[in-house]
Computed example of a mutant assay.
Amino acid sequence: MNYENILTATQNGITTITINRPSKLNALNKATIEELHEAFDTANKDENTKVIIVTGSGEKAFVAGADISEFANFSVENGGKLAAKGQELLFDFVENLSTPVIAAVNGFALGGGLELAMACHFRVASDNAKMGLPEVSLGVIPGYGGTQRLPQLVGKGRAMELVMTAGMIDAQTALNYGLVNHVVSQEELLPLAEKIAGKIMRNSSVAISKAIKAVNANYKDGIDGFKVEIEQFGACFGTEDFKEGTTAFLEKRKADFPGK
């Protein structure tokens, strides 16, 4: 499918989604959010895609924020709808995908860009990456899940400071905070993400999807994560992947998971 604001490519089980608005530092506008939803949905349904990597085009930015020109004149009602629709279409959608999603953060990841990276299942970053939630400097707050996911990842105190100061942190600080898992040079960023994806693909895609659901359950109000884990653990026993994985182990051979 042809997109106006993003690029997609699938190779060796990995679908790479690249946000491609370099003149806007890959800022998220309404059209880009809709295209990203479509691309993630398509990749998630593709049996040939085992891992999704999302990154930004160029060397300057992953996503430098939301496109402010689109909502500068919004009313209270329109602002609420903007956040609700964005979370539904993209940020919550990505977090709950059954296919693992890795954010390869190159350059600026600010505002909606950091929120997108945090919605992914984990993050790797280039050493020139800068991350922050600068929304309060515009008289607004993060609206795409930033006030919820950042404290989950770095702790309440650090999140409060980052939100209140509208400051940016560098890649090494993000690594120290646990916001990203690895920091490498820009040239090594996508190869690292692909290397990790390769390790993921050796395992059962069915089991991984159930693990994602169980881990996410711990962060949802009113949901007993332990109960979800028990349910998903039990469900694994009815899969072909479980039969193959246990048989391969007992036969001392490498498992060839059918993904069912």
Rank of each mutant, 00 (worst) to 15 (best):
A61N: 08
P142T: 00
L179I: 14
V163E: 12
S205T: 15
M131N: 05
G238I: 08
S205F: 04
A9H: 14
M164D: 15
A207H: 15
D241S: 03
N2S: 09
A103Q: 03
K60F: 12
D46M: 03
T15Q: 08
N26M: 08
D46S: 06
T32N: 15
N176R: 14
E135Q: 12
K254V: 12
A109G: 04
I102L: 10
E47Y: 07
D170C: 13
S209K: 07
T8F: 03
A235I: 01
G113Q: 11
K130D: 06
K81F: 08
F93C: 12
I17C: 03
R149E: 03
A159W: 10
N203E: 14
L25N: 10
A103N: 04
I102S: 04
A197Y: 00
V183K: 08
T18Q: 08
G143Y: 00
L150F: 03
V76A: 09
Y3N: 01
K156V: 15
K45D: 10
S57M: 01
E229V: 12
L90E: 05
S69W: 11
F62P: 01
I200Y: 06
L114P: 11
A193V: 10
G155N: 06
D256N: 15
T239S: 02
S23C: 10
N216I: 00
I53F: 14
V140L: 06
S126T: 04
N78I: 07
F74Y: 15
T15N: 08
L190S: 10
G113M: 07
A129G: 06
R253G: 11
Y177H: 14
M1F: 05
T8R: 10
I208H: 07
L36V: 03
N73A: 12
N48M: 07
P191S: 06
G225N: 01
F233A: 03
Q87K: 11
I52S: 00
G80L: 15
K130N: 10
G79D: 08
V184N: 09
T16H: 07
G143S: 07
M160G: 04
G56Q: 04
Q87T: 09
A84P: 04
F74G: 09
A72F: 13
H182I: 12
L97D: 05
R158Y: 12
V94S: 00
T8S: 03
L190K: 07
T18N: 12
V140M: 01
G238T: 11
A214N: 01
D221M: 10
P100F: 08
A61K: 08
N128R: 05
Y177D: 14
T32Q: 15
P151Y: 06
M118D: 01
F257A: 08
S185D: 05
I68F: 06
M118V: 00
F257I: 03
G139I: 05
V105N: 13
L89F: 04
Y177L: 15
T49A: 00
M118E: 00
N203Y: 07
R202I: 09
G259E: 02
E194N: 15
T8Q: 07
F122I: 04
A235T: 02
V94T: 03
A9G: 12
F257Q: 02
V105W: 14
